[in-house]
Amino acid sequence: MTSMQKLCLVYFVVLMIAASLNYIPGLTNEDGLAFGIFALDIYDDALHVASALWALIAGLLSHRAARTFMILFGIAYLGDGVFGFFTGYGYLDLGIFTNASAGLDFSLGRVLANVPHLALGALAVWAGFTNIGRRV
């Protein structure tokens, strides 16, 4: 198993944790905000589970499948994080299509809500394009 495949398995775990945040007692406040910062709905949960399963399958299949996952997932999540800063909503959960733009904002809440997508996306793009762990 290559480093790229192992990284996909790490992404599987991270994304499943993200999908479970709403269901762990004490992590959401009375307004339903995870950590008191952002709301996750059924669409976010479904997106995280689907992404996690994609990561798992890619990681178990092959280095090439893992690399493809990293590149495509990375671009999608990185873009979603950028849209989050500019509009307050992402496109992966269809938020930009169902909500009016909240405008560009670098408040702490907006940063904390979007940094996970930016970080996961950037790491995945970097790993995919540098082809870490490739077999020679």
Rank of each mutant, 00 (worst) to 15 (best):
A50N: 11
Y77M: 12
G84H: 01
R67M: 11
A50P: 04
N99A: 02
G90Y: 09
D45G: 08
F35I: 08
I42R: 13
Y89L: 08
F83A: 15
L72N: 11
I57K: 01
H63F: 05
G26S: 08
F85A: 05
G95P: 09
A55H: 01
L104I: 09
T87S: 12
G95L: 09
L47R: 14
I71V: 08
T68H: 07
M70H: 13
Y77P: 01
G90D: 06
I96D: 06
G81P: 05
L61F: 05
A65L: 00
L94V: 15
L104P: 03
L53V: 13
D80R: 02
A76L: 13
D105S: 15
M70I: 06
D93R: 07
Y43C: 09
G81N: 07
G59P: 03
G26H: 11
L60I: 10
A50D: 08
W54I: 03
L104K: 03
F86S: 12
F97V: 05
G88L: 08
D93P: 08
F69K: 00
A65S: 03
Y91K: 01
L92K: 04
I24E: 11
R64K: 12
D80K: 03
I71G: 00
F73C: 02
G103Q: 04
L104D: 02
I37E: 13
D105Q: 10
S62M: 03
F73W: 05
T87H: 14
N99T: 03
G79S: 11
L60C: 09
A34D: 11
L92M: 14
Y23H: 14
A52S: 05
P25V: 03
D44I: 11
N29A: 11
F73N: 03
L53K: 00
A58H: 01
D80Y: 05
I96T: 12
A34P: 11
F106I: 11
D93W: 08
D105N: 15
L56K: 04
F73V: 06
T98F: 13
R67S: 10
A50G: 10
G32R: 00
A39Y: 15
L40N: 12
T87R: 10
E30K: 12
H48T: 00
A102T: 10
I24L: 13
Y23N: 14
S101F: 07
L92P: 04
E30D: 13
L27H: 06
A46G: 08
D45N: 14
P25H: 02
L104E: 05
I75N: 00
P25E: 04
D45I: 14
D105M: 08
D93S: 15
A58E: 00
L47G: 12
A52H: 02
L40I: 15
A46Y: 06
G74W: 02
G81V: 07
G90W: 08
I24M: 10
L94G: 10
D41F: 10
A46D: 04
L60P: 01
F85R: 02
G103N: 03
L53E: 04
G84T: 04
I37M: 14
Y91W: 13
V49W: 04
F38L: 14
